[in-house]
């Protein structure tokens, strides 16, 4: 889980560096996304998901959240 989050954190950092004009509101949005992704991944791991599934869940939640997509709604619509 630590490794999964460090990979995603690294991607997030790259994103931040490539768009350093972002406002402080964007930064707080990013922090929320990190914690949402961490929580989703930790839950999956606790429930017994495999390491690659934990990675997929964490990455999906982070990417969806960062793009402003309601991933819980996506699931209902699926």
């Amino acid at each position: 889980m630590k490794k999964v989050c460090s990979i995603i954190a690294l991607s997030a950092m790259t994103l931040s560096l490539s768009s350093f004009n972002s406002s402080s509101a964007d930064d707080s949005q990013e922090r929320d996304c990190m914690s949402e992704a961490w929580e989703a991944g930790s839950n999956a791991e606790e429930m017994g998901a495999s390491p690659s599934e934990v990675y997929s869940v964490t990455n999906f939640v982070y990417t969806a959240c960062d793009s402003g997509i309601d991933y819980m709604l996506l699931m209902i619509k699926f």
Binding site: A40, N43, A44, M47, V57, V61, Y71, M72, M75
Partner: peptide
């Protein structure tokens, strides 16, 4: 309540 639970 959890994302993984919803996936299940």
């Amino acid at each position: 309540k959890s994302f993984y639970g919803k996936l299940a």
